[in-house]
């Protein structure tokens, strides 16, 4: 069982990124050899428009401590407007999650272009730092534990 001992706590962070801007931006972080915390792992999507809010819920339901969602800056979307659609969805989703008491400091939304390798490193590091301070997502972990119990119990 994880404790609130922040020294040994390694946040698990999932990044949902678009292929054309942020994925490429993170590639540039690599080619520029800028170092960042290894806690963040990327899942690639064609566009921020493809990123389903239910996947964000699934990430928390699978034990993520934090989430980054990132794509092309406004007007730079490879598909012209996927990010604009995504932005509206995030707005509504974020407020709803906040309303049910989810900690929205654990979900970072950002625009990182293919040229912003340094910004990607910065986003990752500040996110990991924030979540280190917040500690593990215990509210969800409690629910996960109970759900496992329920599902096993039901069988």
């Amino acid at each position: 069982m994880e404790t609130n001992n922040n020294n040994s706590f390694e946040p698990k962070v999932v990044a949902f990124v678009c292929n054309w801007c942020t994925y490429a931006g993170a590639d540039l972080t690599g080619t520029s050899r800028i170092k960042y915390a290894p806690n963040v792992k990327i899942i690639r999507f064609p566009c921020t428009g493809r990123i389903d809010y239910m996947l964000l819920m699934k990430a928390f339901a699978n034990g993520a401590d934090g989430i980054i969602v990132s794509g092309c800056h406004p007007n730079d979307c490879h598909y012209t407007s996927g990010n604009f659609h995504a932005r509206r969805r995030w707005m509504i989703f974020r407020n709803l999650c906040d309303f049910i008491g989810m900690d929205m400091n654990r979900v970072v939304f950002s625009w990182v272009s293919a040229a912003e390798g340094a910004k990607w490193a910065e986003i990752v590091n500040t996110t990991v730092d924030t979540i280190r301070q917040l500690g593990p997502a215990t509210s969800f972990q409690k629910l996960i534990k109970n759900s496992v119990f329920e599902e096993v119990g039901n069988e």
């Binding site: 999507f45 566009c47 428009g49 493809r50 990123i51 389903d52 809010y53 996947l55 407007s81 969805r89």
Partner: peptide, 29 residues
């Protein structure tokens, strides 16, 4: 192939080849 419709459709009636619901869900888990 942007997939904006895929994430939008509430009945999940649209899927996108290469980044389908099953694939991305499995990736997250």
């Amino acid at each position: 192939g942007c997939g904006t419709c895929v994430a939008f459709c509430k009945s999940k009636s649209i899927d996108i080849l290469g980044y389908n619901h099953d694939q991305v869900y499995a990736e997250v888990s």
